[in-house]
Design a protein around this nucleic acid. Sequence first.
DNA 1: GCGACCTCTTA
DNA 2: GTAAGAGGTCGCC
Length: 960
Amino acid sequence: MSDQKRLFLVDAYALIFRGYYAFIKNPRINSKGLDTSAIMGFMNSLLDVIKRERPDHLAVCFDKGGSESRNEMYAEYKANRDATPEAISLAIPYICKILEAMHVPIMVKEGFEADDVIGTLAKKAEKQGYKTYMVTPDKDFAQLVSENIFMYRPVFGGGYETWGIPEVKAKFEVDDPKQVIDFLGMMGDSSDNIPGLPGVGEKTAKKFIAAYGSMEGLLANTHELKGKMKEKVEAAKELGLLSKELARIMLDVPVEFHEEDFEMSEPDIAGVTEIFEDLEFRRLKDNFLKTFTAEGMASNGTSHGDKPKAEDTASNSKSSVSVSSSANEGKQAGSGQFTLFGGDGEASETAKSFSSRNTINETEHFYQTVQPGMGTKLFLQNLMKQKSVCFDTETTGLNPITAELVGIAFSWEATKGFYVPFPENREEAQSLIETLRPFFEDENIEKIGQNLKYDIKVLAKYNVTVKGKLFDTMLAHYLINPDMRHNMDVLSETYLNYTPVSITELIGKKGKNQKSMREVPIEQQTEYAVEDADITLQLKEHFQNELGEANTQTLFDDIEIPLLRVLADMELEGINLDEDFLRKLSSELENDIKKLETAIYESAGEEFNIASPKQLGDILFDKMKLVDKPKKTKTGQYSTAEDVLSYLAKDHSIIRDVLEYRGLTKLKSTYVDALPTQVEPSTNRVHTDYMQTVAATGRLSSNNPNLQNIPIRTERGREVRKAFIPRDKDHVLLAADYSQIELRIIAALSEEETMIDAFKNGEDIHASTAAKVFGIPISEVTREQRGNAKTVNFGIIYGVSAFGLSNQTDLSRSEAKDLIDTYYETYPKLRKYMSRQVDFARDHGYVQTVLGRRRYLKDINSRNGVVRGAAERNAVNAPIQGSAADIIKIAMINIHKRLSEENFKSKMLLQVHDELVFDAYKPELDKLRPLIKTEMENAYKLAVPLDVEIGEGENWLEAH
DNA sequence: GCGACCTCTTA
DNA sequence: GTAAGAGGTCGCC
């Protein structure tokens, strides 16, 4: 062990960005609406470094004002960086406050980048006999690595790696870390906007370094290069030298290294705690306290070695086989390393974790594999005594219709649980499930699970009905926090600070070599499956109380949970598809597409990929120059979007052909050819999967395949609907649509009598609107007037702007504005309602539907007008769209109940937001029609009557 | 092979 | 202007 002094220099912005983007899909928003992702990400990293390394000298380095010298060299330097996200700029003051309270030295030098400050300090410290660790993910720092200067680099997925000279040599294929400057200069860096040599990427740069050693070496020998590369490099010599200088980290920043300035001292525990509490960082606060408690500090005795630990991997589970899979009491991280936490025995740091979460390896647990025969009988006796049990099925795949049971995990007490493995033989499996049937069909035992719809469908295929009260943690969380994601891993990490065993550890990444759960050893199945059931059980405890707080208990009990069973039935039912019809349609489309292709190539004078917006844009606007100033997308390509092209269609036949080509290829690939591949062979039907927890407003979504976006608007697209047909000749397809449900809702909620009366009188609402807005009798309303009124009516629901309206109609911007103004004068209460929603959102941070389903709008008070505007439109739209979703959900539950209780043969098949589709048994039609109409129209009582239109036919198109 | 981007389909 | 899912291309690993 060496006594050499160690200095850690932290690259603040790089870690802040990294932390922010780590949470980008699931940003941390606290109750005040502050996005704390960047703060949390950075603090996690910093605490992690402190805990791992216990540095005695440390500083956090920030940029200020950018690099004056680099900007002088190259005006474009870092020019194409996106503006710093608001969450990051807001985070900086908090981070500085925390660092001050922690008594962590902060280094800033106006006019210099953190890179240069770190580089200069590292070199100066080296002279004073320090080993320096540059804490940063940024590979540019590799150029500074020496015998005493290292990179300490966080790796994705957790842990750190240390780059010394050998690592840098290997990574960059250089002889000396200094050559990294040449390497970066050659290949360039788009995020720093270092141009680099044209046409030179990583591969070529490595080749050049190997051959010439440096940028100068290369430029002096360009005569040895060949072809295009020679031309390009020779033409860019100056750019090359400039790029190299831009890539070079400066070592002459006017800063001094006085070691006493960098000493770690005792943090102001109370001060830091207060800030963390203010930010609502409960776990981070605990983590911080544990890191700086006397025990934590005292037990730090090691690791002043040459190199910090890097890439520690937690040892694999080593559970004992047979009955008891494991009671794993060892605290892996402590053994042989330094112990970080006090001896309370609860949490101990896992060496693998980047964010200090617990895993199965250091958590005491009792997961048992249930043995066949007697073991199962004893287990069942125990099981039947419980009031509430969490279960989780393990299967051979994700499709519940074809999936076979591999095992079922059960848990009714935290950290404990059982796993019943299933035999591969179907008959034996069926006989085992018969043994368990009394449990699943017991009305008095509550069943808990994560995404129970899946388990219910799997068991249904074994002819087992899951009865009794249900608690689905995924649905619970959807109501509690609709904007987050709801998969179990996320929930576990967020609420239990626990990272579950990843399924890919067991069966591999999806694709080529993915195994089936069946091939995983039983001991591992047990650990994985029971852990899931255990976690789900613990999550339930957590969410149970929160449901009450959010006033969403009723939505949960009366809507989402009952709906889960309805959806399971609809999905299992599937819908019949006329594959022959689609095959014919496909070949017709194929012919027409070929013809258009030929015509387009002819007009363009060359063949190209019409489906590539990039190629198409170049042909239309660069080659053919159809427009003087083509519109561009945000990535700088020419936009070839529909609205842009249709504007040009009247003047150019090629545009008309392209638009038609697009329409037809889309139709063919997305629907006509794709749908037949989604027919399930075992049922000969198409089974969509409804997602109950993805839409922020409370709507369902549909996928694999998506049956909620089957074409209807265009004549050719509509044909696809003819492929959806009844079960057999004794059935017809029946479609029931809510008419104008969203407009009725806004009329009712705003109490706008004029509009309410129009609905009550059964008027054509768009014509009625036109009559009132234009001040004419309803009989004199023209098609165009009605069309414009219709557009405004819809626009209101989405939060209109004059700009949007004029884009959608033939109206100019000012005409559109006039129309909107008159509209609001006609319906004054509508406008009041809208501002009431926005005000409510500002005060409460959320809006809600008629049933109290909330949507949180964190940007409603943003200082950024664009962002705030979007939140305001959400505030208006979410209650309307969401209330419509609530209402049809009620109707679905009630219809499903009656169909089953009254023994109908007819089945509900699909939901398309305001429409339900049924396989209607012909002899039942006379009873079915009024049943559906009544249940839908009376699902929820509004001040406006709901109206449902019903149609029937030999296919989905005819049913409309 | 994966993800970002663009385009297009629905309510 | 709201809410979704999906397919193709293209660049990146």
